[in-house]
Nucleic acid binder design. Structure first.
Length: 554
RNA sequence: UGACCGAUGGUGUAACUGGCAACACGUCUGAUUUUGAUUCAGAAGAGUCCAGGUUCGAGCCCUGGUCGGUCAACCA
């Protein structure tokens, strides 16, 4: 939250409410995930908004799991959601579950029946759908709509006791089948599901629908500002109808536009498909837009919070350029990441005038952006690895790296000149021969030589091998969901590149997941959860900004 | 041929509630640089969906359009 931005429209509303002493100036929000999948970057916007705005006004935020559909919800998801929110840096005031309120919600339903505002309907799902009408044509009333209160009370009690099979009966509100708002056409309140619930087990066989659970849960917790996404806007009149008829705490719902990112999908349903169909290795596959994937990939909580701040909050549809997310993580990592040398595609270089068998330690900065980060020692010797694409047999204009007869600075070491090179049968360069300038040592250079290029390197005999995973966008099109056909047709087949022969400086032997590195000139990297001392595995979080590639592709 | 919501540079968000459009990302120059990174300096790019109206004055208000989104799950 480093960037100052004016208050969004929700902050303005809340500021006004606080000023007017509404709810005694109290602010209580809630973040209400359904535990049916992992949280994604879109949720992080909602999390930052709900927790952030409450914090801003001295209020608190509840975490409430909206677990009213036992068929889709699992404890694994509950745990991942809690871990993600904590990792983002937020603390909830209370951990609640809609299922905590099943008894209260049942009593609310009974109260509605008693007020003649709800009835048990024996119609099938299909019949109910048919009687519902369409947005442009009114619905029709169910033949069961006029049952007596006594009969409804009895039937509902028997639904709860398990006397009926799934789908045999539902409880519906009695409102208005001709309402232009589809949600007022006698919405279903309770359905029968003989399914065990992740928390209540087999205690219930009837479960409330979202509309009959969410607003009442807000009211029970005395949520002052219930913030959700735009698609729930048409539910608001119903939200208010239940609160009013049941005479509950007047929580109020406010909507904002959800976050969309280009080159990815942002619905739990679609993400679940990617996981189930094995297009990715799991919910935390680093190519996924989930919070757990971003964490695994090396994103920091600060960068995501800053991103959430920068995208703003409004009521219009938007698709954020993933470049902004990348900017935010680079900005944060630039301050934090330890600079190290790692050769992703090694090419052997022999320095012919450097004594065989000799090696020396050279000093280098851990982070030029951070004085306090200090320095460390790295070994230098006669045989090195350099990056294969830092050498060109016939250099193009403006290529100021290595080429036959050309000089380049080895970062934190010496200036070298390429004297010769060798090739494999296939024409690929196999070896560079060079000579170094002994008096050009970094920090004590008396050679007087000026070279434009600086390249990274590792000492061959000291280097540690590693696997490096490079990621690109998961989809080839900006908005896979809006394209023709199935969104999976637009998956980028080259979104993962695995480099198996990378060579790292020896200090990286000590690396562990969670540690942040910049592989100099190559990008930001972090050890994957698969990484171990025996086999190092790194994820590329994001590349460095690179004006040279653009130059060459012009 | 319904109801509700929205429309500001390429993207996203502002505009002190009516006073001739700002910030960020991106793009493009140039400087610095032992990371073609960072940093620094600068530039281009919208006249606010359209048409009327109110007003001395409209991105903000009114009217009518246009375009986009949402709503017809016993999902949330």
């Amino acid at each position: 939250m480093s960037t100052e931005k004016g208050p969004n429209f929700l902050a303005e509303i809340i500021a006004e409410d606080v000023k007017n002493g509404k709810h005694g100036g109290r602010v209580l929000t809630r973040f209400p995930p359904e535990p049916n999948g992992y949280l994604h970057i879109g949720h992080s916007k909602s999390i930052c908004l709900n927790f952030g705005i409450a914090q801003q006004f001295g209020g608190k935020t509840n975490l409430r799991f909206d677990d009213t559909n036992p068929e889709k919800e699992e404890t694994e998801y509950v745990e991942s959601i809690k871990a993600d929110i904590k990792w983002l840096g937020f603390e909830w005031a209370n951990e609640f579950y809609a299922s905590d309120y099943f008894s209260k919600l049942y009593a609310f339903a009974v109260r509605l029946i008693e007020k003649n505002l709800a009835y048990v309907d024996d119609s099938s799902a299909e019949e109910i759908a048919n009687m519902k009408g369409t947005p442009t044509t009114p619905g029709m009333e169910s033949p069961y709509r006029l049952r007596t209160t006594e009969e409804n009370l009895d039937l509902f009690a028997r639904m709860r006791k398990g006397e009926f099979k799934d789908g045999e009966k539902v409880l519906r509100a009695r409102i208005d089948m001709t309402s232009p708002n589809m949600h007022f056409r006698d919405p279903i309140l309770y359905r029968i599901k003989h399914t065990d619930h992740h928390r209540t087990g087999s205690e219930w066989c009837i479960y409330p629908m979202y509309d009959f659970a969410h607003g009442q849960s807000d009211a029970i917790e005395e949520i002052t500002h219930s913030i959700c996404t735009l698609e729930f806007e048409v539910h608001r009149p119903l939200y208010e109808w239940f609160i009013s008829k049941l005479e509950l705490f007047p929580s109020h719902q406010y909507e904002f536009a959800r976050l969309n990112l280009n080159y990815t999908v942002m619905s739990k349903r679609k993400l679940l498909q990617l996981v189930n169909d094995k297009h990715v290795s799991g919910w935390d596959d680093p190519r996924m837009p989930t919070i757990s994937a971003l964490r695994r990939r090396g994103y920091t909580p600060e960068s995501i919070r800053n991103f959430a701040e920068r995208v703003g909050v409004a009521r219009r549809e938007n698709i954020i350029d993933v470049g902004l997310l990348e900017f935010c993580v680079r900005e944060d990592l630039n301050k934090k990441a330890t600079r190290v040398m790692a050769v992703l595609d090694p090419l052997k270089m022999i320095i012919e005038n450097y004594p065989e068998g000799k090696s020396e330690m050279l000093t280098t900065d851990n982070n030029t952006e951070d004085e306090k980060a200090g320095t460390r020692e790295i070994p230098f010797s006669r045989e090195l690895f350099i990056e294969a694409d830092d050498f060109m047999e016939t250099p193009e204009k403006k290529f100021f790296r290595l080429a036959p007869g050309k000089m380049v600075r080895l970062k934190s070491a010496f200036i070298v000149e390429c004297t010769d090179f060798e090739k494999y049968e296939n024409g690929k360069v196999s070896l560079i021969r060079a000579r170094y300038v002994p008096e050009s040592k970094s920090g004590q250079d008396t050679s007087g030589l000026q070279v434009k290029g600086v390249i990274h390197w590792v000492s061959a005999q000291h280097a540690v091998p590693a696997e490096i995973r490079l990621y690109e966008r998961l989809f080839n099109v900006e908005d896979p969901s809006s394209e023709e056909g199935d969104f999976k047709e637009y998956i980028n087949p080259d979104s993962l590149h695995i480099l198996k022969n990378a060579m790292l400086e020896p200090s990286l032997k000590e690396s562990k997941p969670g540690m942040l590195y910049q592989f100099m000139r190559k990008g930001y990297f972090t050890p994957d959860k698969d990484s171990s001392a025996e086999k190092l595995v790194f994820n590329r979080t994001v590349t460095l900004k690179d004006s040279f590639v653009k130059e060459t592709t012009k």
